[in-house]
Design a binder for these strands. Structure first.
Lengths: 147, 147
DNA sequence: TATTGTTATACTCTATAACTATA
DNA sequence: TATAGTTATAGAGTATAACAATA
């Protein structure tokens, strides 16, 4: 049926990503978030003084596109931008209290989706899958210290 | 940095998929193809009498969107649609000779990207990664016999 | 000159509803 | 009534270039 395609890591990865993504997007929509916004909230929550450039690198989105995401998150009051006093070109971002609450609900929904989708894997299979994906990603983007 | 996100299969999968996808898309662009079109060509090549509904299911795209892809592939002469004589509602698709040649070049480019990206994995790690991704996908979409 | 962020724009991908022709 | 395909349209994600402010 699709033997040649199913030999490719790239194809399988995209299939799983598309399927999980659609499922996750629906859950996020219920709490008023898009997938990209979820990743931004999570990352900002864990990194108090991250700037936009760094954020864009880690999350793999063009700075111009990240900017639009931040505009929206800021306009609904889940996040604020403020100038770096040391280097006034850059801006830091941080979550508001409401942003932190929103992020928490989103994280719960994310873990739910995660468990639904990986239900067929044993605990060790699941962690092996994560390990291999990270290895591919880490090796392929050596300049970026993503950990 | 991104500890919580990196525990999620979904997030890692998307990161790898995005990164590989961008790399692959550039290669495809050089030979005048988009990613989605590659998958369609590959699948049609392997399945002589597949109809559009089935194709859409396997490839995880809405029939309406697949239709646009097929329109383009047909307009450039890589693929033809023809009515199923048994059930005139459905149409089969098949590759032209030029489509088969195009598909072959695309496949070579795909395998190149694949090897570049998974260079850090051993042969057994690579096949384990494919196995786990397929297991997730297969279990999550039980109705669809994707093999 | 180089970097950070911003604006503008276009393309790809995804999702949904309404329609047609056949069954 | 139901199904395969089609048309139209909107939203989300991605990519690129040009610009302002700052270094």
């Amino acid at each position: 049926m699709q033997d040649r395609l199913l030999e490719l890591v790239g194809y399988n990865c995209r299939q799983v990503s598309t399927f999980m993504g659609a499922k996750f997007a629906k859950k996020m929509a219920k709490i008023g978030l898009r997938r990209m916004e979820f990743a931004v909230l999570m990352l900002v929550r864990e990194n108090e003084q991250i700037n936009q450039k760094r954020l864009a690198e880690v999350i793999q989105v063009a700075p111009s596109n990240l900017n639009l995401v931040l505009d929206r998150l800021e306009s609904v009051g889940w996040l604020v931008r403020y100038r770096n006093p040391i280097d006034k070109r850059s801006q830091f971002v941080k979550l508001t209290l409401r942003g932190i609450r929103k992020c928490r609900s989103a994280e719960i929904a994310a873990i739910e989706t995660e468990n639904e989708i990986t239900a067929s894997l044993s605990a060790s299979e699941r962690s092996e899958l994560v390990r291999l994906l990270r290895k591919v990603h880490l090796e392929a983007r050596p300049r970026l210290e993503i950990n």
